[in-house]
């Protein structure tokens, strides 16, 4: 089972490698990747250093080119594919069918993974990507229950990768336009959800308000910790109730399911968080490295240690974690 960790910067890449990642995933400094945030991603010089570091430590490189090519911009996406191949990426993670088509035809020997943004949730969709582009792996969106993941793993002709830890996106990724509805920019069109340039924090007499493009996402009292206004994680009114109508600010943590994931033959687990700090990447990677090794050694008795669980929950959004959709009783 591959432990695949996020590297939004050179420092994070080194942190992941040092903490025991088997592979890291990165994106270029443009809108061809879905973490197109200011201050994130790699310049060419940083890339060169990063690759040298990965090679020295026998670690694989995945490059995410996982947004959708604009109608007059396919050349930019093709350029990212060319660049990823030329720097020696081991894997390209792609969402757009046009980009997949280009990559599969131009570089038939490069390993391609269907990105989570490609929204592959069933066996026929997996076959679509295998037949059309010869993908070697699909990354499942965080919308399936553990039972559904098992059913898919049983029939999939290719490797399955799942998200194990990190910010929780509750929508079928790649098919959520909520961000463009409120801001004009979505992960699909601009490479970011709830982009930072639209965020505003307003101190008021009744508490701290978070806004996204002028829309009130949440309001916090003095004793509450204000979170980033990701639009699906605010408190809204439905009927007479005010609550997190779509999602709580919480992180996914599937560590207790590790023996099951291993047993069903999941090829890789992905840690979300290219936007997080190197210290975060280091701690999370270390926790998962230990867990995977412990689980491999004795799958029957594996249980995450109290310290590990504590560490992961401290690192998570809102200091809360959930099994998310993996858990059947999830509301």
């Amino acid at each position: 089972m591959e432990l695949l960790c996020p590297a939004g910067s050179l420092a994070s890449l080194k942190a992941a490698v040092d903490a025991g990642a088997d592979a890291v995933y990165i994106g270029f400094k443009d809108d061809t990747n879905a973490r197109h945030f200011a201050g994130l991603n790699f310049t060419d010089r940083q890339l060169e250093k990063g690759i040298r570091y990965l090679r020295q430590h026998n670690c694989r490189l995945h490059v995410a080119i996982n947004t959708f090519a604009h109608p007059d911009g396919l050349e930019r996406w093709k350029g990212s594919v060319d660049k990823a191949v030329s720097i020696g990426a081991d894997v390209l993670i792609i969402a757009d069918l046009a980009v997949l088509d280009y990559c599969a035809k131009t570089y038939p020997n490069i390993e391609i993974h269907a990105s989570v943004q490609a929204s592959v949730t069933n066996a026929a969709a997996i076959n679509f990507f295998v037949d059309s582009f010869n993908v070697k792996r699909v990354v499942l969106p965080r919308v399936l229950s553990i039972h559904q993941v098992r059913q898919l793993a049983r029939v999939s002709p290719v490797e399955i990768e799942v998200f194990a830890y990190g910010s929780l996106c509750i929508m079928a990724e790649g098919r959520c336009y909520l961000s463009s509805y409120l801001t004009g920019e979505s992960p699909n069109t601009a490479g970011a959800c709830s982009p930072a340039k639209f965020v505003e924090y307003k101190e008021t007499d009744t508490g701290l308000e978070t806004h996204l493009n002028g829309i009130l996402i949440d309001k916090f009292t003095d004793d509450e910790k204000a979170g980033y206004p990701t639009l699906c994680k605010g408190r809204f009114d439905v009927g007479d109730e005010r609550y997190h109508a779509l999602e709580e600010p919480t992180s996914l943590n599937s560590m207790e399911m590790l023996p099951e994931l291993m047993q069903m033959g999941i090829s890789a687990i992905k840690i979300e968080g290219r936007q997080r700090s190197p210290a975060y990447v280091s701690q999370v990677t270390k926790s998962w490295r230990q867990a995977i090794d412990a689980c491999k050694a004795s799958p029957d008795s594996f249980k995450p240690s109290v310290e590990t669980e504590q560490c992961l929950s401290n690192l998570s959004e809102g200091s809360q974690t959930t099994l998310g959709a993996y858990h059947k009783k999830w509301k």
Binding site: V143, C176, Y177, L178, A245, L246
Partner: peptide
């Protein structure tokens, strides 16, 4: 605009 793992209507009525 979006499709989810979660049923928001059930959630709004506090059902799984």
């Amino acid at each position: 605009l979006a499709y989810s793992a979660r049923c928001f209507t059930a959630r709004s009525e506090n059902h799984s």
